[in-house]
Design a protein around this nucleic acid. Sequence first.
DNA 1: GCTTGACATGTAATTTCTTACATGTAATAA
DNA 2: TTATTACATGTAAGAAATTACATGTCAAGC
Lengths: 176, 176
Amino acid sequence: MAIGTLGHALLGLLVQRECTGYELTRTFDESLAHVWPTKHSQIYPELAKLQAAGLIRQSGAGPRGSKTYAATAEGLAEVRRWMRDTIPSESVRTERMLRVFFLWLMPPEEAMTYLREVGGRHRERLAHYEAIAATIPAGDPANRMSRIAIEAGIRFESAMGEWASWAVDELEKCAS
Amino acid sequence: MAIGTLGHALLGLLVQRECTGYELTRTFDESLAHVWPTKHSQIYPELAKLQAAGLIRQSGAGPRGSKTYAATAEGLAEVRRWMRDTIPSESVRTERMLRVFFLWLMPPEEAMTYLREVGGRHRERLAHYEAIAATIPAGDPANRMSRIAIEAGIRFESAMGEWASWAVDELEKCAS
DNA sequence: GCTTGACATGTAATTTCTTACATGTAATAA
DNA sequence: TTATTACATGTAAGAAATTACATGTCAAGC
């Protein structure tokens, strides 16, 4: 019963603070899902696995049958081992970008519509990330890593938004 | 037997030109795998599925038992339908970026080492994409879409490489 | 009292993806 | 001639991910 990427991510979150499965699900939905999408139907079985492996323990119980989990010392050691000793997969999977390879199959009009949509999404997310970044007090060492992570999102969305605009311009140049 | 993202990607490649499974595998490894990783063990069964669905046909046979496939008219219609009428999944999956969320668990030294590595990878790929871009004749309408796709890679790697350098600087500032 | 929505946790079925197994051909270089 | 590499195609087993099924609590507003 080896622990995978999702298990280590959950472990990392539970080292930071104890959480219920529901809270972990929301944390994923709000932030981690941008780089590692997952559903509650995967999280709950994974928590059971982590508990069976002694990497987390149930630290409490709340209303509506909620259970709070916390990482054990072994769990902390395991997530550190994962970070230090294992090589992350290089792979990136994004259907939006995949489709760009097949835009030539579409009439230029539709290709441009697609690229405008993609650009719009990137700009939306950019605004969202910038709003989050604005709430992180600058220069606070405790939030340094959060700021670094959100900055990656900002630069990514910014670059891709600009790329989409540039791509539309390229297509327009040729249309005229 | 519904066709998924991989099936449509194969279809898209086979519309462009007829290929063997081996050639499709290499095309993925060299370019599409950057946005949609896959293995030959997934490609061969998928080709059988596409053929059974009448979306591709075997158009020839070569040495060493190789089979060449081409998209049928239905296949072309299907890939166009997919591009026009279906909404691409928004999700992006990247373990490298996931790990950034857990860098705070590591000593600053190791976090910086990680970020330097990430930066190095991005710069490597940037150089690779720029080399490819240099081989595409500028202003050639036939290669317009290829140029647009590779530009996305260039901007992405460039932005992420700069982000990694910035992140290292941020951590160094606090260390001193 | 009733309805809606957020909270909360799970399982089941299916599909997709990865890793490993398995086999064989043709060309090239030592 | 023999070893290595690139070509070439598949299957099997297992892990991971998605979608659907399934149930129930608590609070707020009507």
